[in-house]
Amino acid sequence: MQSVARAVLPRILSVLEAISAILLFVMMALTFVDVIGRYVFTAPIFGAAEMIQFLLAMTIFGGLSLINAHDSHITVELFEPWLKKRFPRLQPILVQSFSVAVMAIIAWQLTVFAIEAHEIGSFTVVLEWPLVVVVGTVAGLSVVSLIVQILGLMLQDDPEWRGDHGDPL
């Protein structure tokens, strides 16, 4: 199992890195072009603000998979070092399973949200796009984040994988 994860995970992550990078770039470019269009050509992009909203959600969940895979979430390191010393095996397993469980709830609820948007047939306010396209993509990315998180957890004893990433800075 571990070897499968070891083979698959880096590839998934490099695809996700590319996706997130493109999403964020488009977000920046769209904001910029909209402003320039408005002032220089008096032609703002119709629905730019709404498109930026959708890009934000996708960027967040694209980026979340990268964070989940390496478990580089924000922590308060108060008693953690002490606990890790006393329970070197238990503490990380406990903490990370908890993260996976909460992430599973998030992915589950976002999927439910997307299914409802489909059933009710909601549309976005300005662009009048089917809402399910947007929230479905976001929900899909959250499921990928969860899968990647589990793969990362499986590899947490793999020194090669853990050495893969440097300082989160």
């Binding site: 920046m28 934000l56 959600a57 969940f61 976002l110």
Partner: peptide, 25 residues
């Protein structure tokens, strides 16, 4: 559970919050 899903989706799609990634960038 529904509240959690709704809240996350709303905030992930908040126009105001979109300043955060761009200023980080």
């Amino acid at each position: 559970l529904s509240m959690t899903g709704q809240q996350i989706m709303d905030d992930a799609m908040s126009y105001n919050l979109s300043v955060i990634p761009l200023f980080i960038l």
